[in-house]
């Protein structure tokens, strides 16, 4: 895996933020600063994120790992603008999204963020092509046809562009989701267990595609996974435990990841 863009990463969740608050470091696609997420109040309050400071460079491919309940999903949702942090700031590109209202956030997401979920990625009513261009439609933007065709071609669904999700295999459905995530040339792509619902062969194909396409397009990817083999495809693996960043590995092998995870307890 080539590393054209050198990652500038802060993996010190207790240390002071390196960048000056209020002005994001240029070159970083995603930046979190002192992000806290708390659910509920009083005695029933649950701290899902306990102050995350993190900056991910443009074009980087990062996997987030951690045991169940470590805050992986919350981290992803908060970083992607699906959810707002209780305190702290989140930047995607040059925009601070942590204080945007729901509508502004939705508009921001459809222009600047791509998503690949574990399942239920597609609208059952729409064809492959319509699902891919859905974010553009929502934004009221015209469809750049050559770009759309390139996306569909890249995920290998040229012949299936008229099909509906119910007529596709699980792997094919995830490939449609990848194309849709990339159609807007977003600042960042977030993937939540993108291969979790697939058998290992289909999962590998989807993962290969994700790695290859985001690399070609110099896309920033954040992927949450519990599978060390999947995480090993990332340039960097960040470990989360109990709502806090607890370490990172660069270009780790599956075994290194397994060892690290085992050190973190049950997973």
């Amino acid at each position: 895996m080539s590393r054209l863009d050198t990652a500038v990463t802060t993996v010190d969740h207790r240390g002071p933020a390196r960048a000056t608050a209020g002005s994001p470091a240029t070159g970083s696609a995603i930046r979190l600063q002192g992000v806290v997420k708390q659910y509920g109040t009083g005695t029933s309050a649950v701290m899902a994120l306990r102050g995350i400071d993190l900056s991910l460079a443009r074009g980087s491919f990062t996997a987030i790992m951690g045991p169940s309940g470590s805050g992986k999903s919350t981290f992803l949702h908060t970083a992607a603008g699906l959810d707002t942090p209780t305190s702290g700031s989140v930047w995607i590109g040059d925009t601070e999204i942590s204080h945007l209202r729901a509508t502004r956030l939705a508009k921001f997401r459809r222009e600047h963020v791509g998503f690949v979920f574990q399942a239920y990625n597609l609208l059952p009513a729409l064809s492959v092509e319509e699902n891919v261009t859905l974010p553009l439609r929502l934004a009221g933007r015209g469809v750049d046809k050559p770009w759309r065709d390139r996306m569909i071609h890249s995920v290998g669904l040229d012949d299936l562009r008229g099909r509906r999700p119910a007529e596709l295999s699980g792997g094919q459905q995830q490939r449609v989701a990848i194309a849709r995530a990339l159609i807007t040339r977003p600042d960042a792509v977030f993937a939540d267990e993108p291969t979790g619902a697939l058998d290992s062969r289909a999962g590998k194909q989807v993962l290969d595609l994700l790695v290859q396409m985001t690399h070609e397009l110099n896309q920033t990817v954040v992927m949450v996974t519990h599978d060390p083999m999947v995480a090993a495809r990332a340039e960097r693996v960040i470990f989360l435990a109990d709502g806090a960043l607890v370490g990172a590995l660069e270009g780790a092998t599956t075994q290194q990841i397994v060892d690290r995870m085992t050190g973190l307890g049950t997973w």
Binding site: T103, R110, V113, L123, R180
Partner: peptide, 16 residues
């Protein structure tokens, strides 16, 4: 609901 949730996730505004 799930359909609408997906639409919201990929950037449909509440108004939409």
């Amino acid at each position: 609901r799930r359909e609408f949730a997906l639409l919201r996730a990929i950037g449909a505004t509440p108004l939409q």
